[in-house]
Design a protein around this nucleic acid. Structure first.
Length: 371
DNA sequence: ATGCTGCGGCGACAACTGCC
DNA sequence: GGCAGTTGTCGCCGCAGCAT
């Protein structure tokens, strides 16, 4: 057979690399062989039918490099993944032992990086149909990575405290001992698996979570994560509306607000000092914080709330992300955000906010001990 | 029983989109 | 115009079904 020498690196024709069976792979390989081994003359190709009657996909290719001859024993597989490679290694090595002066080569439509490493370490050559090749015998060395190879990895630096990213923080902080699957987190946080993957990668880089061999995600430094999140967080991330109410006490405001929100079918949850007071005995406070999503007009009218810039005793936050409501609970008929959310909302609160935040944290860890 | 292979879901990641 | 978040892609892997 004559060799058509194509210039090195010339783009190979596009061929479908998937759902290609063994026969098709062999045909494609034979067709492309001259361009896959551009600096070698191919003298002869023969099919081997070794051991039993079953036609193995072994091909013997006689080549000429310079003035030296070599026999390549080629095993073709329809798939170049590591498991296929490992099976072939055994066969190729055995056959190489029996016959002298031959060099074993693994061939598949595409050979992945890990598979290539395995083959190299076993001293077996490989050729795939997109142009990756490795051959090493006598004085010959071919080591080629195809131009179709993926570009090198690019590490992206994205915030773990970004709006949607904090959904993941809530999920894992609310259940600190749990081992998470990527898809499980994606479902709970209503995010795409890719989005979750990005955030978890960063959490891992920063040492907040770890990944097991089975890819499950586990929180390993909840305290540091929570503190850093709280320091980078403020309720003001959500749009704030300040009102004055004629109600006599914060408790009365809470009850009226909760009742009105229920009646108007608005999603709401108390946070800040008001929320914390539902969870634990509390210092005096006089402004009620509540997250409400949806149209505020009706509830403002219903409760006769007066917009004000000073002396407000109600602040209604429109959640910038629905994750705010994750794991909220009902306490004595009133919706309160999760302890985690309480903590981060309180932490930067002027005055005794940090102290109260710590108190919530204590309660939270005690609850965890029980469960 | 054991081995092979195709299928489908999952994980990993770059490219793309669209928002502030 | 930079970056948060989504989309698309493809290797990897478990599994079922078929062959031996």
């Amino acid at each position: 057979m004559k060799t058509m020498n194509l210039p090195f690196g010339k783009k190979l024709e596009f061929t479908k690399l998937h759902s290609m069976n063994e026969k098709e792979t062999i045909n494609e390989f034979i067709k492309k062989l001259p361009s896959l081994l551009p600096n070698m003359d191919i003298e002869d190709i023969s099919y081997e039918i070794p051991i039993d009657k079953k036609s193995y996909s072994h091909i013997m290719v006689k080549i000429l490099t310079g003035n030296k001859k070599k026999n390549l024993l080629i095993e073709v597989k329809s798939n170049g993944e590591p498991r296929f490679v490992e099976r072939s290694i055994y066969q190729l090595k055995n056959l190489t032992k029996i016959k002298k002066g031959i060099y074993p080569v693994f061939v598949a439509p595409y050979i992945s990086e890990r598979a290539r490493e395995i083959l190299k370490s076993e001293n077996i050559g490989y050729i795939d149909l997109i142009g990756d090749a490795y051959l090493q015998f006598d004085s010959v060395l071919v080591d080629r990575i195809s131009i179709a190879e993926r570009k090198t990895e690019r590490r992206l630096n994205r915030g773990i405290f970004a709006s949607k990213a904090t959904r993941i923080l809530r999920a894992i902080l609310n259940d600190p001992g749990k081992k998470w699957k990527n898809t499980e987190l994606a479902n709970i946080c209503r995010m795409s698996p890719a989005g979750v993957y990005f955030v978890v990668n960063q959490l891992e880089d920063k040492g907040y979570v770890s990944r097991d061999e089975d890819k499950s995600i586990k929180l390993i430094d909840s305290k540091r994560l929570l503190k850093n999140w709280a320091s980078n967080w403020t309720v003001e991330k959500s749009r704030s509306n300040a009102f004055f109410s004629f109600a006599r006490s914060p408790e009365e405001i809470i009850l009226k607000l909760a009742k009105a929100a229920d009646e108007l079918n608005l999603k709401y949850a108390f946070t800040g000092m008001a929320g914390a007071s539902m969870v634990a005995p509390f210092v005096r406070y006089n402004d009620v914080w509540v997250y409400i999503s949806g149209d505020l007009n009706e509830i403002v009218k219903k409760l006769d709330l007066r917009p004000t810039s000073s002396g407000a005793n109600i602040r209604i936050f429109e959640p910038f992300d629905d994750g705010i409501f994750m794991d909220f609970r009902e306490i004595r008929g009133i919706n309160v955000v999760s302890n985690i959310q309480l903590f981060v909302d309180l932490f930067t609160y002027p005055g005794r906010g940090q102290e109260q935040a710590e108190k919530i944290l204590e309660i939270n860890s005690k609850e965890d001990d029980i469960s």
